[in-house]
Amino acid sequence: MNNILELKNINKIYGSTIKTQVLNNINLSFESGSFNSIIGQSGSGKSTLLNIMGTLDKPSSGEVIINGINIARMTKNRLSEIRNKSIGFVFQFHYLLPEFTALENVLLPYRIENGAVTKEMREKAVEYMRLVGLEKVINNNSTKMSGGQQQRTAIARALINNPQIILADEPTGNLDSNSTETIYNLLRDINERYGTTFIIITHDRHIAEKADRIIEITDGKINLDIKKQ
């Protein structure tokens, strides 16, 4: 199988006077269509790693290769196109834009990419909101939703452009075990149906044990990398 994403010798150092090395020589590759989880203690470097994978942050050294192409060789335009079209994000803390409704938030990546929203696209967005159990609040202002509802809206938003890769940082962090199960089943279904690659940071053992692969990060290093099969 081909690798959709590769990291080569990634280091990340914060600070110029007092330096802290947050990531230490990380080498990883992800097969296209795989369902991966990343676990590790708080502060171990998981979010930093995910942001580098998603080209939202730059490593201090090392290479990020998406679909065989080193992102250092890409123009700014090409990079933002990849970020918007090929990668779907679910962030750990900042979920939604406050001035928009839930549905408008879901449609945002599509609007950025294509401009006007078609009727089909609107219907697709409503369908995703239904799948994450939120058809009743699609027109709520995003600030007028609970934390878990905002998080589920962010998941629907990550899915809207049918990206090749979804990077999710604690996507079920605010959810009860029933909703977590529902969301997991939805993500798995999308993974199987469209071959979408998932890389999910999670503290939830029930999510991690169902992934094909678990990567454990300890103090910015890969402590363990295991595959189910």
Partner: peptide
């Protein structure tokens, strides 16, 4: 049995 438990086994 459960591959998740390989983590704690290590």
């Amino acid at each position: 049995s459960n591959f998740y438990n390989i983590i704690v086994t290590k």
